[in-house]
Simulated scan of single mutants.
Amino acid sequence: MIDGVTYNIVCDEPAAVNDKAILSTDAQVAERTYLEKDYPEGTFAKSGIAEAIAKAKEVAQKEKVTKLEIKEADDALKKALGKLDEVKASGKTEVQTKIAQAAEKKEADYTKESWANFAKAKSAAETVNASETATAKQLKDAADALDIAMKALEAKKPDNNNDNNNGNNGNNNSQTPAIGSVIADASGIFNYKVTGNDTVEVKNMTAKGKAKSSVKIAKNIKANGKTYKVTAIAANALKGNKKVTSVSIGSNVEKIGKKAFANCTKLKTVTVNGNKLKTIGQSAFSGDKNLKAVNLKKVKTLKTVGKSAFKGVSKKITVRVPKNKKAAYVRIFKKGGIAANKIK
C-alpha cells in the first residue's frame, strides 16, 4: 500500500513548466515531421497520431496539469509515432523483398514490352530503397508497382520450329491463371481477379492507378498471353480514391459492386459505354459529393440499383438514360437515392 500511495502522490503532483514545454515541443515536431501524405492510405488515421498530437497540445496548454496527465499524453504520442515507424519499416522490408524476387527474373524469358515495364518498375524500386529520405508511402508504392510489373510479365512463346522455316508450329506454354487468382495487364493501372475461363473483374487500383484523375476501365485486357473480358467492378474497388475525377466504364461490364466508387470525393462524371450493365450495387457511389453527371444512354439492361447507391452525391446530379427506359429507370433509381427529376 505504501508504494501505491507514493505513486499516486507523485503522479498527482503538478507538472513543472518545463514538462509542459517539452510535451508541447514534441507535439509540434511530430506534427511537422509525420505527415499523412507520406503514408499509405489509411495507415496514418489508423495510427491515432492526429488524436495523440491534439491531446498533447491540449494538455501542454492547460494552466493546471498533473504529472500523470503529462505522462499519459506523452505515452499516447510515442505509441502513435511508433506505429507509423512500424509502417515505414514494413514498407522497407516489402520493397527489399520484391527487389530480391525481381532479381531472379531473366530478360530472355519474357516479351520485350512486358520486360520494359518491369525493368522500369525495378529501377524505380531500387532508387526508392536506396534513398534515406524515402517516405513510407513511396516505399509501399514502389513495392506495389514492382509486384504488378512482375505479375504482368509475359513469357515468350517457345520456338518449336526446328527447321528454321519461320512456321507457326510453336505452342504457348504460359500458365493460365486459376479462377480466383489476381492478375495485371501491361498498363499496370488495375489489379484484376480471374472470375472465369475468359473473364475478370476489377479488384482494385495499383499505386500507379491511384495517381490518375481520368480513369478508363477497358472492355478487355490481355495478360499472360490471353485476352479476358472485364465483366465486373468488385466491391470497394476504387473506394476512397481522392484523385479520380472521371470514370469511363467498358462495354463488357455487367456489375458495379457494393461501394465500388464510394467516397471518391473528386469524382464528377461517370460514363458506361455499353449495353450490358445489369447491377449497380449498394452504396456504389455514396459520398461522391461532386458527382454531377452519370451517362447511361447506351444502357438498356439495368435491373437493379442498390440501396443508397447515390447517397450524398451532388444535388445537381443528372443521370442520362435511354428515352424508352426513363419510366422504368425512375423506379429503379429511387431506391438508390436519385429523384425522378434527375433522370433525363
Rank of each mutant, 00 (worst) to 15 (best):
K242C: 14
K242M: 14
K242P: 12
K243C: 04
T245Y: 05
V247Q: 02
V247I: 15
S248Q: 11
S248E: 09
S248H: 12
I249A: 09
G250A: 13
S251E: 08
S251R: 03
N252G: 11
N252L: 08
V253K: 00
E254N: 13
E254V: 12
E254F: 09
E254H: 10
K255V: 08
K255R: 12
K255T: 10
G257L: 07
K258T: 15
F261Q: 06
F261V: 09
A262N: 11
N263Q: 14
N263K: 15
C264L: 13
C264W: 03
T265Q: 10
K266Q: 11
K266R: 10
L267A: 04
L267W: 02
K268M: 11
K268D: 07
T271L: 11
V272G: 01
N273P: 09
G274R: 00
N275F: 02
K276V: 08
K278Q: 11
I280W: 00
I280Q: 01
Q282Y: 05
S283R: 05
A284R: 02
A284G: 07
A284N: 04
F285T: 15
F285I: 12
S286G: 14
S286W: 09
S286Y: 05
G287T: 09
D288L: 10
K289E: 06
K289Y: 07
K292F: 06
K292H: 12
K292A: 13
K292R: 12
V294D: 01
V294L: 10
